[in-house]
């Protein structure tokens, strides 16, 4: 991984068309501004994880599996 040290107000270029500017930095949060062509998708990485986990969670559960999940819990509660 390429590591570059930058200060707020400084910029990094990626290829011909993408600019990443450090807007603000505090001990536990960095604010960055990204200039990129409209056809370049810019996402927080966690969004991709959330997308795939949502798709997995939305898969219809067979009714008998759901019943077994619920009854496992109910047995434990008694």
């Amino acid at each position: 991984m390429l590591v570059i040290r930058r200060k707020p107000g400084e910029t990094v270029l990626i290829g011909d068309s993408i600019e990443v500017e450090i807007l603000d930095a505090s001990p536990n949060r960095v604010t960055i501004g990204i200039r990129a062509p409209a056809d370049v998708l810019v996402l927080r990485k966690e969004i991709l994880i959330a997308r795939s986990e949502n798709q997995a969670a939305a898969r219809a559960l067979p009714p008998e599996l759901l019943d077994s999940i619920l009854s496992r819990f109910q047995q434990r509660e008694r």
Binding site: E46, A50, E53, N54, A57, I69
Partner: peptide
């Protein structure tokens, strides 16, 4: 937290999102 039944049957909860 959204719960997922993983393909191997484990139950997991999404605490990231």
């Amino acid at each position: 937290a959204i719960v997922t039944v993983q393909p191997d049957g484990r139950l997991t909860a999404n605490l990231l999102a």
